[in-house]
């Protein structure tokens, strides 16, 4: 029995042992999702990089050529392929990329960003473990968020492709509208359990038939 699915390398073994911040809620997310109405899941282990650089400097231009641009102002998102850059502040950005982009899995994104920044003023910090990602989708996704987010989330104001750093359910989170009816929410890891439960609670009413 010893040879069944034994991880070949220590790296694989480490990967199989890791637990995402909202993993204990996985079953609850599945049970609480209402198909075609509002659905919630965790997208674990995305690669995230904290960037601090002046986008008008030489280093900023070099970094932008790696990431596919740096967003110009509040709300905007740039990127190329499956790498996105979210605006967090005038000189602060969050790069979000697939799990495989991480250097522990052979990705070179972080190294490329470090090299682009060079010795100039700024930061490239691996923040992959800082936040987790929730994906909230469905025609009721907006109504769920509106219970705890004071931004105007109506589609005439909040367009798909906008990301804003704000509060959801009284905790700080980055809210990224990825499609007309889909949102990505980035809470800090320590808030993942709270926000996960908060979202489940907010979703609960849509599982019941509508009261006329």
């Amino acid at each position: 029995m010893a040879e069944t699915a034994a991880p070949a390398t220590s790296a694989q073994k480490n990967l199989s042992l890791r637990v995402s911040p909202a993993a204990p809620l996985g079953a609850a997310f599945e049970a609480g999702s209402v198909q075609g109405v509002v659905e919630l899941r965790e997208v674990p282990f995305l690669t995230m990089v904290g960037l601090r650089v002046n986008r008008n400097s030489g280093a900023g231009e070099r970094v932008a050529s790696v990431t596919g641009g740096l967003p110009a102002g509040c709300g905007s998102v740039s990127g190329t392929g499956n790498t996105s850059v979210l605006w967090l502040g005038p000189e602060e950005f969050l790069v979000v990329a697939p799990t495989e982009a991480h250097e522990s899995l052979g990705g070179d994104l972080i190294q490329a960003l470090r090299e682009a920044l060079g010795g100039e003023a700024g930061q490239v910090v691996d923040l992959s473990a800082n936040r987790t990602t929730f994906e909230l989708t469905g025609p009721r996704a907006r109504a769920v968020l509106e219970k705890g987010c004071s931004l105007d989330l109506h589609s005439r104001v909040l367009q798909a492709g906008t990301a804003l750093s704000t509060e959801i359910g009284n905790i700080p989170a980055v809210l990224w509208k990825t499609g007309d009816e889909s949102f990505r929410i980035f809470p800090r890891a320590s808030f993942a359990d709270f926000l996960g439960r908060w979202l489940l609670d907010s979703m609960r009413e849509y599982a019941s038939p509508e009261v006329p």
């Binding site: 102002g73 509040c74 709300g75 905007s76 931004l151 105007d152 989330l153 109506h154 104001v157 909040l158 367009q159 906008t162 804003l164």
Partner: peptide, 10 residues
């Protein structure tokens, strides 16, 4: 800020 969702009126 273009593209932001936060017009004061709304």
């Amino acid at each position: 800020i273009s593209g932001t969702s936060t017009s004061p009126t709304s």
